[in-house]
Every structure is written in C-alpha cells, then in structure tokens.
C-alpha cells in the first residue's frame, strides 16, 4: 500500500509564530496548471494590524543590533534557504509553471541575493554616510538609519526571488517588515517564513501575510504606525494611487510600482536599501 503523505497547514507568520487568520478564513491556492495546491490562510485587516504591532515591537531590538550581527543573521537565512532548496524548487516550479531548470536558477539566485545583501549590512553606512566639511569649527557627520516599520507588497509573479529581493534590502539595514505575499503564489512565502523562523531572525522582524492584497494592504497603507510602503506588487495603477493617497496621512515614504514587474535577475543596486533609510546628521563643536 502507498503511504498517505502528511500535508501541511499553510498559515501566516506574525511575531515569530504561525497563526491562522484570526478571521478563520482560508482561500484556495492552485498551481500554474490550475490544480489544487493548498488552502492558505486569508489574512484579515486585524491580522494586518497584529503584524504591524509585531513589527513595531521588534524594531527597537533589530535596529539596535550591530550591522555585523544583522549581516550574519541575513547570511544565516541564505544558509537555511539553501538547505531547503529542493522543496523550494518544487514549489516555485509548480506555482510559477516553470521548468525545473528555471525554478532551480531562481532558487539559486535567491540564495545568492541574500548573501549579497548580507554583506551590505556593515558597508552601507560608509558608502552613503560620511563627514560633512562644514565651514565652521564643528565635527559634522551623516549616517543612515532605518526608517522603521515598512509594509511591502511583494511581486505577484516572482514568488520567491522577487519576494526575497524586496524583503532582504528592507531588513538588512534594520527596518522591520510586514509583507503581503504574492496572492496567487503564496506557497514559497510560507516556506520562507519557516526558513526565517529557524535562522536567528528575531520574531516580528519579518511578518508574512497571505491572501488577496485588497484585504490587508489598504489597512497597512493607512496604518499610522507604518513608516513606509513599498507598492512593487501592485499592478493596477488606480489601486496604487489610492494606496499612495492613504499613505500620505502620516507621510509614509512610498516606493511606487513600476509599469511591469522588474527583472529580478538584474543587479539590484542600492535603491531598495536607501529608499527605506533616513539620514541623520549630527553636529558637535570642535574646541579646547
């Protein structure tokens, strides 16, 4: 007799735990061929607010870690992700309808991207900060600091490489994040949550919501304790404009979506890190 496999319950990732949606709702996730994959948790507005609370709670500790330590933690995510590569290749392949070879390349690029960002943790401040040669006897320097809690709408197409490409640059600099995963392809995001939970990332630093983005993202965009909003995964311009308007209430920093989903295999540059950083300038007199 063939063994009946044990299936997994796909849940949210909030504050380091894996709750079901408080609403008790789930939605059907299918693979690229339309075959049933899972009943994923359908996050509610309340789940979004809980996730923001968890992200806020984690911010002080995470942003106070040394950059060296944050770099090590992000590198650790890459290590653990690599060890789950086979599973993720399978999930990306089924969800995105790619060949195995394509899915493999995508998972490898994801691991490499994490390694790339991990290395930035203790280098960025020297690249974008420095001393300012003011015309008076003062020592004056500027340094980057994390913006705070960042809400991210992950890309809808690229469910793993795209997701990691938007989350890693936000957290490596010390922000905490609430990410709305690809609505139709949430499975790799849930597996990534399991990777995060086992790679020394403190609970609440990354919070993952699954479900239609219309259920949670308007709440995140209007939330007064969210400091920035990345709309990369919003494909409808009118929706993106509405969300940007809602974000104006507390002057969130907003990253607008591009006309088409970016090619995630390209060199990412610094922009996704610097977008969610504040520059702090400190002055002190020089004298005896």
């Amino acid at each position: 007799m063939t063994r009946i496999d044990v299936r997994k319950t796909y849940k949210l990732y909030v504050g380091g735990a894996f709750p079901r949606s408080e609403s008790g709702r789930s939605y059907v996730v299918e693979d690229a061929k339309g075959k049933f994959l899972a009943n994923a948790a359908q996050a509610s507005r309340k789940d979004a607010r809980d996730a923001v609370q968890a992200a806020r709670k984690a911010f002080a500790g995470w942003s106070a870690r040394t950059p060296y330590n944050r770099g090590q933690v992000v590198y650790r995510i890459a290590e653990v992700l690599e060890s789950r590569a086979a599973q993720l290749v399978d999930e990306v392949q089924r969800g995105e309808g790619e060949t195995k070879r394509q899915a493999q390349a995508s998972v490898e690029a994801t691991v490499d991207r994490l390694v790339w960002y991990a290395g930035w943790a203790d280098k960025l401040a020297q690249v974008v900060g420095g001393t300012n040669p003011v015309a008076a006897p003062y020592f004056d320097f500027s340094l980057p600091e994390p913006t705070g809690v960042v809400a991210v709408v992950a890309p809808q197409e690229s469910s793993l490489l795209g997701l990691v490409s938007v989350v890693a640059p936000v957290v490596v600099t010390g922000n905490t994040v609430v990410v709305a995963a690809s609505a139709e392809r949430p499975v790799p995001a849930i597996t990534l949550s399991e990777v995060l939970a086992t790679s020394d990332v403190p609970g609440g630093v990354v919070n993952v919501l699954t479900g239609p983005i219309g259920d949670t993202v308007p709440t995140l965009a209007a939330h007064m304790d969210v400091n920035a909003l990345d709309l990369t995964g919003v494909s409808d311009p009118a929706t993106a404009a509405d969300l940007e308007r809602a974000a104006a209430e507390n002057l969130k920093r907003v990253l607008r979506p591009e006309a088409a989903e970016p090619d995630w295999t390209l060199d990412p540059g610094l922009d996704r890190m610097t977008r969610f950083l504040e520059t702090k300038t400190v002055w002190h007199p020089v004298g005896i």
Partner: peptide, 24 residues
C-alpha cells in the same frame, strides 16, 4: 529619531550638511 541632532550647539546650518526629517 530626528534628522539633525545638534550636540552642545543648536540651529547650525551648512550647505555641505544634509538637512531633513524623519516621520511627519
């Protein structure tokens, strides 16, 4: 959590020195 911190001084400005805020 502020864009400019003046230590033992205040209201100093210079073209080489970035100025701007956090939050609202």
């Amino acid at each position: 959590r502020a864009g400019v911190v003046w230590a033992n001084t205040f209201n100093k400005f210079d073209p080489t020195s970035p100025f701007g805020g956090y939050q609202e």
